[in-house]
Simulated assay, not measured.
Amino acid sequence: MVQQSSQVSLAAQTDYQHFGLRLDQVVADLFPEYSRSKLKEWILGGNVTVNGEVCKVPRQKMTGDESIAVEAEITQQVAHSAQDIELDIVFEDEHILIINKPADLVVHPGAGNRDGTLLNALLAHVPDIDKVPRAGIVHRLDKDTTGLMVVAKTIPAQTHLVEQLQSRVMSREYEALALGTMVAGGVVDAPIGRHQTKRTHMAVREQGKPAVTHYRVIEKFRAHTHLRLKLETGRTHQIRVHMAHIKHPLVGDPAYGGRWRLPKGASEEFADMLRSFRRQALHAAQLSLYHPESEEWLSWQAPLPEDMVELIEATRADTQQYGLDEL
């Protein structure tokens, strides 16, 4: 039995029909997919805001012109099966496991992905890990993002690692290929929250949670930029959202890449390479943290996967074709 948590982010606007109703009645009407008892629990727990202010009073009367938002977490016990799925293990001891995740591997089971996930693989590799919340998974990578992840094999190790993550001590660096030629590195400091209409997407929103991404240029091409990025926070889809926000979305990003476009004058070979790259060009290249038992500062690197190496080489060749060896 594994403890699984999911984040709930809801937002809605009241109207004239809600005038004079209590807050608990209004949220029940706005969010009927959740029980009244659960919604009341969230109100009392400070998970509901009215016009940006936390409201813990279920009987608070509404005027019919409020913005109501819910940010909460649901935890439940879910039974998952152990599956013999090969893992690329970079480091392992009795406390932690460092994994180089391939593309197409989902981290947690969910709708449409009930098995064949990293969690199923962990249950087979470390049978006792079912006693650790979330099977020891401390942080996630999107399904098609490759690279390094840390997994805790014990509850004390998980507690220690989560504290490092929350205090921003743990260091995570990524490589990516972005659209457009960027002049220099910089910082994106923009809050991220659930998209207002696309429930599986995130977006830069004023009422979102703080999110900071640092980036620097590794190599500039005529129509793309190879980047190194460092997370200061760890919001869902953070790098993808932030890069799209500054008009440099990641190559191949199906959610935030925007309208498909090819560089002017691209060869058919290069155009085919770009069209065939059907995932966000993002790789978790370096992970550094304090070992939860020894307190030693450790760091691991994972080389770019072959598909990204080939993509960057093709992008470099496209640039050289125009006599632009150095930008």
Rank of each mutant, 00 (worst) to 15 (best):
residue 2 V to F: 13
residue 5 S to W: 03
residue 6 S to C: 07
residue 8 V to M: 07
residue 13 Q to V: 07
residue 16 Y to L: 12
residue 26 V to D: 08
residue 29 D to A: 15
residue 29 D to Q: 15
residue 31 F to H: 04
residue 32 P to L: 02
residue 35 S to P: 03
residue 35 S to R: 12
residue 39 L to P: 04
residue 39 L to K: 04
residue 41 E to K: 14
residue 42 W to P: 01
residue 48 V to Y: 06
residue 50 V to Y: 10
residue 50 V to I: 14
residue 55 C to A: 04
residue 58 P to V: 10
residue 60 Q to R: 15
residue 61 K to D: 00
residue 68 I to A: 10
residue 71 E to I: 11
residue 71 E to M: 14
residue 78 V to T: 15
residue 84 D to R: 12
residue 87 L to M: 11
residue 91 F to M: 03
residue 92 E to Y: 00
residue 97 L to H: 03
residue 98 I to S: 03
residue 102 P to Y: 02
residue 102 P to K: 01
residue 105 L to P: 03
residue 107 V to M: 06
residue 110 G to T: 03
residue 111 A to S: 14
residue 111 A to Y: 08
residue 116 G to H: 05
residue 116 G to Q: 09
residue 120 N to E: 01
residue 120 N to W: 02
residue 121 A to G: 11
residue 123 L to C: 09
residue 126 V to R: 11
residue 132 V to R: 03
residue 133 P to R: 09
residue 133 P to I: 06
residue 138 V to S: 03
residue 138 V to L: 09
residue 139 H to N: 07
residue 140 R to L: 09
residue 145 T to I: 06
residue 146 T to W: 02
residue 152 A to T: 05
residue 160 H to M: 06
residue 161 L to T: 09
residue 165 L to N: 07
residue 167 S to E: 13
residue 167 S to F: 00
residue 171 S to N: 14
residue 172 R to V: 07
residue 174 Y to N: 01
residue 179 L to Q: 10
residue 179 L to I: 14
residue 183 V to N: 07
residue 185 G to T: 06
residue 187 V to F: 06
residue 189 D to R: 11
residue 190 A to E: 08
residue 196 Q to S: 15
residue 198 K to N: 11
residue 201 H to Y: 12
residue 201 H to L: 07
residue 203 A to F: 05
residue 206 E to Q: 14
residue 207 Q to C: 10
residue 207 Q to S: 14
residue 209 K to P: 01
residue 209 K to V: 03
residue 210 P to Y: 09
residue 211 A to E: 10
residue 214 H to W: 02
residue 217 V to C: 02
residue 219 E to H: 09
residue 224 H to V: 00
residue 229 L to W: 01
residue 230 K to F: 00
residue 233 T to H: 00
residue 244 A to W: 02
residue 248 H to Y: 07
residue 250 L to V: 07
residue 253 D to F: 04
residue 258 G to W: 14
residue 275 R to F: 05
residue 280 Q to I: 01
residue 284 A to M: 04
residue 288 S to K: 11
residue 300 W to P: 01
residue 304 L to M: 10
residue 307 D to I: 07
residue 318 D to F: 14
